[in-house]
Amino acid sequence: MDTKYIEPFIEATINVFREFYKEEPILRSPFLFDKEENLGWDLSAVIGIAGETKGVVSISFPKNLIIQLTEKLVGHEIDSLNDDVIDSTGEIVNIIAGNAKKGLEQYRLVISLPSIVEGPDHKIAWPTSSMPIITIPFDTSLGPFHLSVGLEDIIK
């Protein structure tokens, strides 16, 4: 696995969590994601990448973690995956993908608007091509989350 190209995404994720949530996410070992596998997440935000390559970036959370993180932003209690939670999750993946482009400037990339996938133990319909998806696990003081990245012909 060539992990050089996932470093900008890792750096962007840590920076976003630090600035947005005042959290210091701890990086765990990235792994090649089995597209048929469910990992027990409740909410994911997915963003498409186009331009000089095609790809996808997603961030996936358990319900309790994303609710607690969103509470930090809005300053009041939240009891469900409401519009604020969905809004903030889409914004996070947008910021991570946009910031990561800085580390991939040799490719001119365009990012899409985020899509949200919600539901207990949901599955994301990843591109069916041979594009491998690298999943990067992080721990926070409030619980774990995953960032997943696939970039055609770049991450091999």
């Binding site: 947008n94 991570i96 946009g98 910031n99 990561a100 482009k101 800085k102 400037e105 001119r108 990339l109």
Partner: peptide
């Protein structure tokens, strides 16, 4: 914006 690349 989140668009951090120089070309952006």
């Amino acid at each position: 914006t989140s668009e951090a690349a120089k070309y952006n």
